[in-house]
């Protein structure tokens, strides 16, 4: 671009009349936003607008539940009784009286560890297989039908088979998590890889990127939004599957805790455990979503 030459004449003329140059400097007031108090009010309004609706809805739901379950002959306890019954569990999550008589923290942490192992395995194997299926037409034609059939098998249906194979509850539970979480990871990764624009492949070809460079510099960043969609679905499914699996395999874990509470007719404990399961599932989902946001920043914007 030919930038127009800056006109120099006025600048050259300036020293001839220095008197004209002595302009008074007007002090500019520093830029002022609204005062702090007003901004605080704005923020608190914003926060209130977000917090009030869920609080109101939850309060109403609890009220209805309380009213419905308070009547004589109700099969489920009202919220007030749930809190009363489980107060010890809520306030002492870390107690450990040996065996299976542990606080909720230990049950949840055992479940989370199983999910962590199975899910980590599923992520690695899933991304690898997804890349293979996405990149190679031959692999896709060979593997895709198998994947499509196997992914519809319900998680728990794998449990007897894995118990037979591993002859132990712990690896079986991890395997069930693995097999549950892997399908969305494979399928989404494969779609992401297949959707890498031809333009990026052309760029890589002109630059003569080798396979490893292509994988790290083009494939992973380009497919990252898809991969993370798969990972996010996967974490949700893992958490769904672990509770069911643990009910069957026993041992320490939130699933077993629920089943044990049912066997001892501690309905309030079941309700408390469900609240914990829900909250943790939500948090897990948010963690993966936040991770996706960090990793794929810039990728989605185009």
């Amino acid at each position: 671009m030919n930038m127009p030459l800056v006109k120099t004449e006025p600048m050259m003329a300036a020293p001839a009349r220095p008197a004209a140059m002595t302009a008074t400097v007007l002090p500019l007031a520093p830029p002022q936003g609204p005062p702090l108090a007003k901004r605080m009010l704005g923020w608190s309004r914003e926060i209130a607008a977000r917090l009030v609706p869920p609080v109101v809805v939850i309060a109403l739901a609890l009220l209805v539940w309380e009213l419905v379950c308070r009547k004589a002959g109700a099969t489920l306890p009202p919220p007030s009784k749930v809190i009363n019954d489980t107060w010890e569990l809520i306030t002492h999550p870390f107690y450990d009286r040996g065996g299976l008589d542990k606080g909720l923290f230990w049950h949840l942490s055992a479940s989370l560890q199983r999910v962590a192992k199975g899910y980590a395995l599923a992520s690695i194997v899933g991304v690898a297989l997804g890349t293979l299926v996405g990149q190679s037409t031959w692999a896709m034609r060979g593997l895709d039908p198998i994947f499509q059939v196997l992914r519809t098998v319900p998680p728990l249906a794998w449990l007897p088979l894995s118990l037979a194979a591993f002859r132990d509850g712990e690896p079986s539970a991890i395997f069930v998590i693995f097999i549950t979480a892997i399908w969305p990871v494979i399928i989404n990764t494969a779609v992401g890889i297949r959707n890498i624009p031809q333009d990026y492949r052309n760029v890589a070809a002109v630059l003569r990127l080798n396979h490893l460079e292509f994988f790290w510099k083009i494939m992973v960043p380009s497919a990252a939004p898809y991969i993370f969609t798969g990972l996010r679905i996967g974490i949700g499914l893992s958490w769904l599957a672990i509770v069911a699996a643990e009910m069957l395999i026993g041992g320490v874990g939130i699933g077993f805790f629920i089943w044990d509470a049912w066997n001892s007719s501690h309905i309030s404990e079941i309700i408390l455990a469900l609240v914990y399961v829900g909250v943790i599932g939500f948090v897990l989902d948010r963690i993966v979503a936040a991770l996706a946001n960090i990793v794929t920043r810039g990728t989605a914007a185009n």
């Binding site: 052309n202 760029v203 380009s222 794929t296």
Partner: peptide, 11 residues
């Protein structure tokens, strides 16, 4: 090559 649609890597 300078591609028609720039083909810059958006990340």
């Amino acid at each position: 090559v300078v591609f028609q649609n720039h083909s810059l890597l958006p990340w």
